[in-house]
Amino acid sequence: MTSPNWLTVTQGTAPLLVSIPHTGIDLAGLDSRLVSTWLGRRDCDWWIDKLYDFAADLGATVVHTAISRTVIDVNRDPSGVSLYPGQPTTTLCPTDTFDGDPLYNMGDEPTPSEIDQRRETYFVPYHAALQAEIDRLRGMHENIVLYDCHSIRSVLPRLFEGTLPVFNLGTNDGRSTDPSLQQKVSE
């Protein structure tokens, strides 16, 4: 399978798959529709790809996108289910920043058909690559770990109270991984 030029898959043989969904700054030609290109890139997970650049050397498989989360957030549920029910959150194709600032010039927001097109162009291939690597690694190992890498500004009052931790090993309340693995990694 040939990956699109915005998607990088580095195959390893260790039972570790590293997903880097938000370091992309490629705005896919949307520049003139955005309030500013800086706002279109501001919520990037800056430097996560550099922080985890050692992973491939350890034999991990790494899946990384160059597309900005402003174009599409490949780490969101495409059905629109909120990550944090009852709280503000970003959507599949965000129209505002983490701070609530509008991303698009008035009238230039993505239409439902454009969101569908972005889903097919970016979301589907990203997740197909992840699934292909999960299947490949499960063919080699009884158990594998999918490590989803993120960063965020420490203070975002619109989204979170207080100051966020420097390092957070989340398990989605025990639904995404066995909490014992979280404990082992944090020791």
Results as ranks from 00 to 15, higher is better:
V63E: 08
A132Y: 01
H127Y: 09
L17M: 03
A14M: 05
N143P: 08
R118C: 00
V81D: 11
S113V: 09
A56N: 13
S36C: 09
G24T: 02
D53V: 04
P110E: 01
F54P: 05
R136G: 02
Q183K: 15
E114G: 14
P125M: 10
W38M: 07
T70K: 02
A55W: 03
G29Q: 08
L103E: 05
T97H: 01
V63W: 02
H141I: 12
S3H: 14
Y84F: 11
L83T: 04
E120F: 07
V62D: 03
L27N: 06
I152K: 00
R33S: 11
I67Q: 08
C149F: 07
A132I: 08
S32A: 14
D26E: 10
N5Q: 07
S176W: 13
I48P: 06
H127V: 06
E187I: 05
P110T: 05
S180G: 08
L146Q: 12
L156N: 13
T177R: 06
D77E: 14
P85S: 09
H127L: 05
G29Y: 00
D96G: 11
K184L: 08
L27W: 04
D135F: 11
L51Y: 12
W46C: 12
E133W: 03
L130I: 08
L103K: 00
G80D: 02
A132E: 11
V63F: 01
Y104W: 01
P157R: 11
I115C: 06
I115R: 01
P112W: 01
